[in-house]
Design a protein around this nucleic acid. Structure first.
Lengths: 422, 422
DNA sequence: CTGAAAGCGCTTACAG
DNA sequence: CTGAAAGCGCTTACAG
């Protein structure tokens, strides 16, 4: 039996890329080897020595064992030399073992056509003869070839991915938003890069730089800190979610002002006269708008406003509500800036033994799932979160496909969901 | 004044890439233009006509106005021709207006060095003379150059990004997990690609294909459906989270069995004798383990098991608990497979007027924030979610950097958090 | 209908 | 210390 050895050892740590010295003397020695075997391409594993056992295996036709051993031993081998006259099955096997993906050239070679042709059938563009197409498709299948997205990106300057900057996924408002955005984008073949910004401008800017360098096709952002200057120079489709950044940047949001007024009106209709508002954090647009809505509605009814600070989180709201209820036992209604704070207020009331909705009625804002978990269930101004996400995703897609950035602002209505707390 | 016109109109929709007919006759006409201006590279905008106003502006030295007009009018212009002898300031301006990023070649040209040298200072590798480095850094700054991550990826076969497949971000267990993973990965310079799988194998496999084609450096996965065959052939670092997939795949999880026994033991210590278990979905490993823990602990104490199905969600659990409580009024303790279902059980009890913890004690599993929102606050077996995520991220990073996939399984303990429901 | 070649924007081994 | 050149894996306009 002839020696089918194709492998060659190098000293450990050695690396080279092209024209390694001495390699031009390398020839195939198998009876089916091409006469001249200049290695076009090869992989490198820091090697110690020729692995005789592997060679023996290989000579005995036990490809799998041989290759496995070589991979384990980290021996250099010359991929192209080998694939040049290995059986198709072994070729695939080898690539797998080595974690090397088949490329368009492999497919072309196997199908006996040019890479251009393969590309054409891949992209279904231009003319390809039926028979040629068939050959190519077979090659693709047998090599389990998957086009390399990175290479495609580099040429097309597009990556089939979009970024999504949110303040904090841990805030129960966002998971649903992310989910609905992902759904639309995935359907269109886009991947989501998720960034939590903690509302810190620097983080947002860093994320944007990263996205740009990765050729994202656009991004969605929920932010108060970001200004239009940061975005408008980007010449990249951007859609703002939940909060409007500027006239020029398309956005999808909810009418917080109207929603707040409606919430207060609901409490009024339920007979409340001393209505407090637990407000969200200063400088957060949604919080400001809800506060304004509360103020205007209270004023319009000639009532006295009670405003306590909150931070859109449970504990601050609970503590401040506790203080409020103790200082102002006349309070009979609370409009909380969001559901989480509403739950905080409910806990405060429960601690003081104030029955809900008997002596105190509470309404929140957002419509997150928490509201149905608590007892009594929370009345709230529900935001159509999924629709927000869906719309934003669709808008972004439209911008990406249309190219030109049209400016448009979509405003959804918050919807009163009456449950047990009012 | 000389005509500094550099722009040339084409008919609408026309596209070309190289050697457009007639262009070899194009010359620069500005006094500072190079003598021969073969366009190496240019951008195309479907154009209508030469914009004389833009040319006038340009001739008057009003670069900004000129360029703006041309961009608006979508006129072809020859980037390289122009950048060839435009002032540095105008160059930057132009690129910005056109949404074209500076490349390494622009930097090289501006600094008067080769791209290799620029690359060297960029990557801080190899020798670069101080003065050269300075020149390059200045060019980088003045062009606001950012290296293109995609091109780098293509060469390096690495993308500084990792995937994260989870069942559903909407499940309150995952946001915190995602957050903590993101934190470790971001610190190391990695971006997260998020995939919601809905536990559907096909989705998971699709996501994996996508990730591979995008050269992710590894990924994290929470899945029951994925088998080791799907992963082990990938030669890509993978870490399983929350659920173990196989001996070979490194994992980070919680000892659900022990946690479940501890939970039941806690109820026993609190005096419960008829303890029910609302189990999680069949075939979900965590659910099975918790069930087994419950069963063994109950059996070890010679008690009778009560097991009702649940689906890790609120409503199913509530309905089934309702039925259970009505059929078995002797039940005095509930161990729910997760917190969400525990809240469901609480709601059921509250509907039937069963006082908690007076006549019924409830304990959950997970330690999600919900538990503190409800009244009474939920006793639970808290999983160290953030630590899980952190550990998983670190493990993945280690695998990515180490290259070799070592197998290791980290198991955390669930911790009893006694609150008001027991 | 098909292939050769140039190019996307980087990095690296090699040869000065 | 620096530059020319090849290559990562694709796509596309052009020339058959």
């Amino acid at each position: 039996m002839q020696n089918r050895c194709l492998f060659r050892a190098r000293s450990a740590g050695e690396r080279f890329c092209r024209k390694p010295a001495g390699l031009n003397r390398l020839r195939g020695r198998g009876h089916d080897a091409p006469s001249f075997l200049w290695p076009e391409k090869f992989l490198h594993f820091p090697a110690n020595s020729v692995d005789m056992k592997a060679i023996t295996f290989y000579n005995e036709g036990k490809d799998r064992e041989s290759l496995k051993l070589l991979c384990e031993k980290e021996v250099i081998y010359f991929l192209k030399c080998v694939t040049g006259y290995l059986s198709k099955k072994s070729q695939i096997l080898m690539k797998r073992l080595v974690g090397k993906m088949a490329t368009i050239r492999d497919v072309a070679k196997l199908a006996g056509v040019s890479v251009a042709t393969v590309s054409r059938v891949l992209n279904n563009r231009g003319y390809v003869h039926q028979d040629t197409r068939k050959k190519v498709e077979e090659a693709i299948l047998s090599l389990d070839y998957k086009p390399n997205a990175v290479a495609r990106s580099l040429f097309k300057k597009t990556s089939k991915s979009v970024g999504f900057i949110i303040p904090d996924i841990t805030n129960p408002f966002f998971p649903q938003l992310v989910r609905s955005v992902e759904m639309v984008m995935k359907r269109a073949g886009y991947t989501i890069l998720l960034f939590n910004s903690d509302e810190i401008l620097e983080n947002e800017l860093k994320s944007i730089d990263l996205m740009v360098s990765k050729y994202v096709d656009g991004f969605l952002v929920v932010s108060n800190t970001l200004k239009k200057e940061h975005i408008s120079e980007l010449s990249l489709p951007v859609v703002c979610l939940d909060r409007v950044i500027g006239e020029e940047i398309p956005s999808v949001s909810v009418d917080n002002y109207a929603g707040a007024r409606k919430a207060v009106r609901h409490l009024l209709e339920r007979g409340c006269r001393n209505i407090a508002h637990i407000r969200g954090p200063a400088k957060v647009r949604t919080a400001e708008e809800r506060l304004r809505g509360y103020r205007d509605e209270i004023r319009a009814n000639g009532l006295k406003p009670y405003i306590v600070p909150g931070n859109y989180d449970l504990n601050t709201a609970m503590e401040n509500a506790l203080e409020l209820f103790e200082k102002h036992p006349e309070i009979d209604g609370v409009f909380a800036g969001n559901d989480v704070m509403a739950v905080g207020a409910m806990k405060a009331a429960s601690k003081l033994g104030i029955p809900i909705p008997g002596r105190l009625k509470i309404i929140g804002f957002d419509g997150i799932e928490w509201g149905t978990a608590v007892t009594p269930e929370l009345t709230t101004m529900e935001q159509p979160i999924s629709e927000l996400g869906k719309k934003a995703g669709e808008l972004l897609l439209e911008l990406i496909n249309g190219g030109k950035l049209r400016t448009s602002h979509y405003v959804f209505e918050a919807k009163l969901i009456v449950r047990e707390s009012t």
